[in-house]
């Protein structure tokens, strides 16, 4: 086996179950409810995390279904795995939400037509934006969680998102895994990754979300 084929082999074994889950994707968009309002406690923050993961899963599902023509076989395999991870994160957060008495939202739908998903460069650019956003979102959301168990639950995901972000960045621009646009190179924040409040993040999410995600009620501190 050649070194380059590592992801391809690992990805091939994965394909069947991923398709299975893709088939379970809930696409019930209810026109009469164009807004998802996130709650004012940590359950709202967990719902916010669910939205982020569903957004990422939707994005990768689209790329995996119709990869850009200039994607290499290895890149296709990598994106297949990224897709699987995001679906698992979403399913997991769905279980967490259910356990705290919240029904995971079923009316989420995303439109990524503002990205150029027909080229490798366009897909990598989009993936980098979404992965870096995810990392910053989890860093900013952690302090809004009051129960340690759920805090750990989010941190188990956030470092995997950072691993994704670093890989996608390196695919796009080798060596940019922790470049100065995401990890401050100087000043008081030197060495720290980005952190964004839910409202900052949702401003971006709402560019892609078909229904409005309202986060004004989310805890602020």
């Amino acid at each position: 086996m050649q070194r380059r084929s590592f992801f391809q082999v690992a990805g091939a074994a994965a394909a069947t179950s991923a398709l299975l889950l893709a088939g379970c994707k809930d696409d019930n968009v209810t026109p009469s409810e164009p807004t998802l309002t996130l709650g004012n406690d940590e359950k709202g923050v967990l719902s916010y995390a669910y939205v982020l993961e569903q957004m990422e899963a939707s994005f990768y599902q689209k790329v995996v279904a119709t990869p850009p023509a200039d994607f290499s076989a290895e890149e296709k395999a990598i994106f297949q795995q990224l897709y699987e991870h995001e679906v698992l994160h979403r399913e997991y957060l769905g279980e967490v939400l259910t356990s705290v008495g919240i029904t995971p939202p079923t009316n989420l739908e995303f439109d990524f037509s503002s990205f150029t998903l027909t080229t490798r460069a366009g897909v990598l650019d989009a993936a980098q934006q979404l992965e870096d956003l995810g990392v910053a979102a989890y860093n900013g959301a952690a302090k809004l969680i009051t129960t340690s168990l759920y805090l750990t639950a989010l941190a188990k995901i956030s470092s995997v998102e950072a691993r994704h972000a670093a890989l996608v960045r390196d695919l796009r621009q080798p060596g940019s895994f922790a470049a100065a646009d995401v990890v401050a190179a100087s000043g008081e924040l030197a060495g720290l990754d980005d952190s964004k409040t839910p409202l900052q993040v949702l401003e971006v999410v709402n560019k892609y979300s078909v229904i409005k995600i309202a986060g004004a009620d989310l805890p602020k501190a």
Partner: peptide, 12 residues
């Protein structure tokens, strides 16, 4: 956590 995710980028 902002350090935590940087370590994860390094690890990756």
């Amino acid at each position: 956590l902002q350090i935590h995710s940087v370590e994860a980028r390094h690890a990756s």
